[in-house]
Simulated assay, not measured.
Amino acid sequence: MNRIGRRWAAAFGLALMTAACGSGDTTGKGEQVSPIQRAPTPKSEFTAEEIEATLDALVTEINEGAIEPMQMAILLKEIGGFFTPITTGANRAMGELGVTGNVVGHSGQGRNQQERAEAQGEQIGQAVADGAAGIGVSPFGDAIAAGIDEAVAGGVPVVTLDTDAKDSKRSIYVGTISESAGDTAGKTLLALLRPAPGTVVIHGADDPSWVDGMTRMLGARRVLEDAGYTVVVRPITWSPGGEVADVEAMAAQIETADPPVMGLLGLHNVSYRCAMAAEAAGATELPVVAFDFEPKTVEYMRQGLIKATHTQRQYYAGYLVPYILYGIKIIGPDATKAILAPRMVDESRLNVGLDVVPWDKVDEYDTFLDSISVTQ
């Protein structure tokens, strides 16, 4: 850990000690005496200043209320991988708040999406039975709605993160807004392209059953088509052998497209395949823009073959949820949503936004992640 990271860790440790003392120092009514204190986030060009300001405003309002102990549960699809930064953020926020509870992965039950969603619904029910007064959950699918609704009917608010259950009675969704993410990615590539006409290859989703993937692709496609480019979509091949199939298909598009290909845009974690396709076609001069911060993506960025990538701020999604649940308990849902308004895209969805990382800022982004003890 670098010196900035060590200073942050020391501040975080102090905040944890303060929160722990506060939760034990109570009045006769069981109210927490010490105010909530957030550990300061290190300053960087990648610090999400708007989210930081919104959180500070929420904490200020919470501290005006009757601060109380709280038990909560954060239920994720898994603890590692993509969810590692979410886990880090959620645990950090719960420590600062001095609440009790756990961040846990799925139960391991179920072989498909439907069965896992049903098992996750049972996890929600168990969390309520164990005394949780607020629940954060990353849903496997719509089958979880019944479990969410039952918890809400029993007076336990639920906040979704990363993926949504929009037809349930959850209070707020926290995460990436797919259309906005696609729009941002499209504009990042657009700034690197030669003037139209020309073809752009999007490596993404074209299956309407995958709503988030499809919406992200349509957001990017709209930006590029509005600028006069012809867009062709190469659907991601997730099955074994998918990398070879995708690279060969996109290389063929580069070699044969009319009008000629001007650039490539990947919208998911395997978007480094776009750079592989450009290499295979002998067209490494084409601008390639990616999504997520996979090791292969970083490798191609360091070579200058991927010009920028977009990361989804998983850490902030995990960090926000406990604060939102605590805000709902102390100042109520309406007051909490009013404070969150600068980051809300509608009455129930909060956009954590994206970090746009240029190819020549990889080291700076790594330093930022290190400073908040996050593995992306």
Rank of each mutant, 00 (worst) to 15 (best):
D360R: 06
I339C: 10
F140V: 12
G242C: 13
D370G: 05
T215H: 10
M301V: 06
N351S: 14
L265E: 03
S348W: 12
R302Q: 15
V247D: 00
I372M: 03
P333R: 11
L190H: 05
A290T: 00
F83D: 06
Q109L: 12
Q253Y: 08
E78F: 00
T41G: 01
A39K: 03
A9Q: 15
H310N: 14
L350P: 08
Y326Q: 02
P342R: 05
D149C: 07
R7W: 10
A132K: 00
K361D: 14
P197T: 06
G154I: 01
F368N: 00
A66C: 08
R3Y: 07
V270N: 09
T215K: 14
E285T: 14
R273H: 14
G141D: 04
I36R: 05
I254D: 08
V174R: 00
A10C: 04
I328K: 00
D183E: 02
L55E: 14
P240L: 01
A127C: 06
P240M: 02
L354H: 12
T163G: 03
L192A: 11
A335Q: 07
A145H: 05
Y300R: 11
V156K: 02
V158W: 02
A277R: 04
P40Q: 10
E279P: 05
A252L: 04
T100G: 04
Q123A: 14
E50C: 01
W359M: 10
G266Y: 04
V231I: 02
T47H: 11
S348A: 12
I306L: 01
E248Y: 05
D370S: 06
G204Q: 06
Y229L: 10
F82N: 04
A146K: 12
G242V: 08
A127D: 03
G186T: 11
G198K: 02
A129N: 09
A132F: 09
G81Y: 01
P333K: 07
R3I: 12
L192R: 12
I135E: 00
A93V: 00
V156N: 01
L76D: 00
K361T: 04
I62R: 02
D258Q: 15
D366Q: 12
V233H: 02
G89A: 00
A9E: 15
A129S: 14
R170A: 13
L286Y: 13
P287I: 09
E64K: 15
F82M: 09
A153N: 07
V357R: 07
G105C: 07
L58G: 07
K29M: 12
A133Q: 14
M17F: 07
V374K: 03
A153M: 05
S171D: 04
G108L: 03
P287S: 08
G28D: 14
I62A: 03
A181L: 08
R116I: 13
T87F: 02
P295K: 00
E279T: 15
V357K: 03
G242N: 09
A251K: 11
F368Y: 15
Y229G: 11
G136C: 01
E96I: 06
E50I: 12
I67S: 02
D370E: 14
G304C: 13
T26Q: 14
T47V: 09
T26D: 03
S107G: 05
A90W: 02
T215W: 11
Q253E: 14
